[in-house]
Amino acid sequence: MMRATTAAAILLLATVAKAEDSLIEIVTREVKGCMDSEHLGSIGGLRSYNDPNSAEQKCFLGCMLKKFKALDADGQYSAEGLKTTIQHCPRMKSHPDIQKAALQVADECNGKVTGCSDYCSCAPLAAKCLHEGMKNKSFQTIFIALDEALDKMQS
């Protein structure tokens, strides 16, 4: 995977952040909530850029993408929802090159996440499109904060 020097700057859950909470604390809280709601007992090797291996992993990823507003309430891909999250992220604003790439990728995925019926089936398609789009622009996955939280939870 290509690495960007500013990859750690990606913060997508700023809209739900409290001033005293760190990024990893926020994302970890959301991860635990989605693990509970989707009956996922272990995060194992799950990452935003890996294909989920089970129904629980697919639904967990869908739950997280709903938190990022990449999926709407019906579980369908929402470029506008994701772009709103990206635009309101203070750290993304401080790295306009990453923000611009993320906004472009959100739009590019709009017509590519199709043929799925709910958040569990749409999540892997959306995550793969977003990851590949960012990789093609020489940045890490748009969901780097999610992956950092998953790494921290495993250590």
Rank of each mutant, 00 (worst) to 15 (best):
Q154G: 06
L13C: 11
D72I: 09
E20P: 00
G81W: 09
A4K: 00
A9T: 02
I43L: 10
M2F: 03
K67L: 01
H39P: 00
A8V: 02
C89H: 05
D97R: 04
I26E: 02
V31M: 10
T5M: 05
R29E: 15
I86C: 05
V105F: 03
A70S: 13
L146T: 13
Y119C: 10
L40K: 02
R47S: 11
T28M: 09
C120F: 02
K93Y: 03
A70P: 05
I98V: 15
F60T: 06
M1N: 05
T28Q: 15
G133F: 07
E25G: 08
M153D: 12
A79S: 12
K112Y: 01
D97A: 11
I144C: 00
T15I: 05
G45Q: 12
S37E: 14
K69G: 01
V16N: 11
N110C: 05
A70F: 02
D97E: 15
L12D: 10
F60W: 10
E132F: 00
V31G: 04
G44Q: 15
A17W: 08
I98R: 04
K67E: 13
G62N: 05
A17E: 12
P96G: 01
D72K: 06
M2P: 12
A149F: 00
D107A: 07
D21L: 00
A17M: 08
N50G: 03
K135F: 06
M153A: 11
A149T: 11
D118Q: 09
A102C: 06
T5F: 01
A4G: 10
A70W: 01
V113K: 13
D72W: 05
S42C: 12
N110K: 12
K112R: 14
L12F: 04
V31S: 06
Y49C: 02
R91Q: 13
K152M: 08
S78M: 11
I26V: 15
Y119M: 15
M134H: 01
K66H: 08
A8W: 06
H131S: 15
R91G: 04
K83V: 00
L125N: 10
T6L: 04
